[in-house]
Nucleic acid binder design. Structure first.
Length: 410
DNA sequence: TCTGGGGTCCTAGGACCC
DNA sequence: TCTGGGGTCCTAGGACCC
């Protein structure tokens, strides 16, 4: 098969992304264990940690307190998502110079389909290696790159390449490559599925080949079908260049559980404000608004509403969020550790409704508020309700109570 | 150890319709 | 008067990923 007709997928992943950016911004962190996600006494988990921290057994998803216990000398930073966002944008801009067929798998992870660009690259492998070198030079961040005839093989190749390497699964080499991999490596196999598979004495992808398709289907549903195929390196999923996100959400876990309804509503308003800002920036309207509450016992409940007319404005979204939230909260006897709000079933433009006159005033107000905030920061303009949070926030900041988020003043 | 925030996708069950 | 079956929509929740 020549290079022109072969499918060639590249998967690329920035190593320890948030920690790497922090080290770039503050070179004194170089060579030190770095944990991004919060300060050790705060509620939360590590979102990223440097390879130096991993040597102590720290990993992402680990509670901060535990990370501190394992590695007290680590540097703990809260992190700054706006900075990561701008690095991510630069990352994807560079990738799109190589091909328009780029899928944003996350902030720091992408799939590229080079197949359509065969005429540009005499050797796909060389193009992939060149891309890796280019990213590292221009961004100053180490990346791992995997390549293969489809997404699953490219992704697994990247795992093999970590940290900082390049690995390619060549045609014919799939079986040998896959056989010995731990089932944990397969995306989609989380803790729950692992328990089930290990009980069946399935530990490596090769072991999975012994299970009939019907058994996997019975055990895992549609996910089982994927398991059957992906464990054999079969994957027809295309690289998708998505234009519209499926959902947008904002949520906060408080440093201390909250019981005060007024305070909770004020925070809900603040989240709706941030959410609608994101919707406006993306020119998105939501058919579904959902509110989430996590109680002091860690139980989580959500309530959603489907709307015929999609919404974007703060006034509409908050009114609905509040109507969903109050019965949820008042029905429980517990204080809350988390509130969240989510918009989904998103559309690009708002269809005109015959029965609801289009609120030009509301849209213009939203746009104006957005402009001021883009220029002077989110905290430059707050609703009266959000102002309620401010004294409380500054009052208790030193003691590290209530609000972890510094976004109010950002 | 005490459990983030932002996402995607799937499933089960009830309502409703024909 | 005690009753089917299939399809679709909607809600709630959960597994999983980075």
């Amino acid at each position: 098969m020549n290079a022109r007709s072969r499918r060639f997928i590249v998967h690329i992943d920035i190593d320890a992304f948030f920690a790497a950016v922090e080290t770039l911004l503050d070179p004194t962190l170089k060579g030190k264990p770095v944990v991004v996600g919060g300060l050790p006494h705060e509620r939360g988990v590590a979102s990223t940690c440097s390879y130096e921290a991993r040597r102590f057994g720290v990993h992402s998803g680990m509670p901060l307190a535990k990370a501190h216990e394992l590695c007290p000398q680590a540097v703990f930073v809260r992190g700054n998502h706006q900075v990561y966002q701008s690095f991510s944008e630069a990352f994807f801009r560079l990738l799109r110079e190589y091909t328009p067929d780029v899928e944003e798998a996350s902030l720091d992870e992408a799939y590229l389909d080079l197949s359509r660009c065969g005429h540009l690259y005499p050797s796909f492998s060389r193009a992939a290696r060149g891309l890796k070198a280019r990213i590292e030079r221009d961004l100053g961040l180490a990346v791992s790159v995997g390549a293969g005839p489809n997404k699953i093989l490219a992704k697994l190749a990247t795992k093999k390449a970590k940290p900082g390497g390049y690995f390619e699964v060549e045609p014919g080499g799939e079986e040998e490559f896959l056989r010995g991999l731990d089932i944990e490596a397969l995306p989609g196999i989380g803790p729950k599925s692992q328990v089930i598979l290990r009980l069946l004495n399935v530990h490596r992808l090769g072991d999975l080949w012994g299970l009939p398709r019907a058994s996997l289907r019975a055990l895992f549903g549609l996910e089982g079908e994927d398991l059957y195929l992906q464990s054999r390196g079969i994957d027809a999923r295309p690289v998708v260049t998505r234009v519209t996100p499926k959902s947008v959400s904002r949520e906060t876990t408080f440093l201390r559980d909250i019981w005060d309804t007024r305070l909770l509503l004020a925070h809900l308003a603040y989240l709706c404000d941030r959410l609608t800002l994101a919707l406006r920036q993306g020119c998105l309207y939501a058919h579904i608004i959902e509110v989430k509450a996590r109680y002091s016992d860690f139980r989580t409940e959500a309530r959603r509403r489907l709307m015929i007319t999609p919404r974007q404005e703060m006034g509409d979204v908050f009114r609905i969020a509040r109507e969903l939230f109050l019965p949820l909260f008042e029905g429980s006897r517990l204080s809350l550790r988390l509130v969240g709000v989510k918009a989904s079933d998103l559309v690009r433009s708002r269809p005109r409704s015959l029965f609801e006159p289009y609120s030009e005033r509301g849209e213009r107000l939203g746009a104006a508020v957005g402009e001021v905030r883009d220029k002077y920061g989110f905290g430059s303009l707050l609703t009266a309700r959000e102002r309620m949070l401010e004294p409380l926030y500054s009052l208790e900041k030193e003691r590290g109570f209530v609000l972890k988020t510094a976004s109010l003043t950002r």
